[in-house]
Simulated assay, not measured.
Amino acid sequence: MSKQALPVVDPQACCPPLATRPLDAAQAAEIAPMFRALGDPVRLRLMSMIASVPEICVCDLTSAFDLSGPTISHHLKVLREAGLVSSERRGTWVWYQVKPEAFRQLGSLLEIATPAGS
Rank of each mutant, 00 (worst) to 15 (best):
I31D: 03
D40K: 03
L79S: 04
L61P: 15
L79F: 01
F65P: 02
L46W: 13
Q12F: 09
W93Y: 13
P16D: 09
V42Y: 13
R45H: 15
A113E: 01
S118V: 12
F103H: 02
I31K: 00
I50H: 09
Q27G: 07
D40C: 03
T114G: 06
G83A: 08
L67T: 04
L38S: 06
P22H: 12
Y96L: 06
P54G: 10
D10F: 05
Q97V: 14
R90Y: 10
I31N: 00
G117K: 07
D24S: 11
M1W: 00
M47I: 14
L109Q: 06
P22I: 14
G117V: 07
E111C: 07
I50K: 00
S73K: 05
V42F: 12
L106Y: 05
R104V: 10
V42R: 08
A28E: 00
G91K: 01
R36S: 03
V98D: 00
R89F: 09
H75G: 08
A32C: 05
R43N: 08
P7T: 08
G69C: 15
V94N: 02
L84K: 02
V58T: 15
I50P: 09
P22T: 14
A51D: 02
P16R: 14
V78M: 03
D24C: 10
V8K: 11
P54D: 03
D60S: 12
A5D: 10
M1I: 14
F65N: 15
L76W: 05
R104A: 08
G39S: 04
G83K: 01
P17F: 12
M49Q: 12
V85L: 05
V42K: 00
W93I: 15
L84Y: 01
V42H: 12
M34N: 00
M34T: 10
A37F: 05
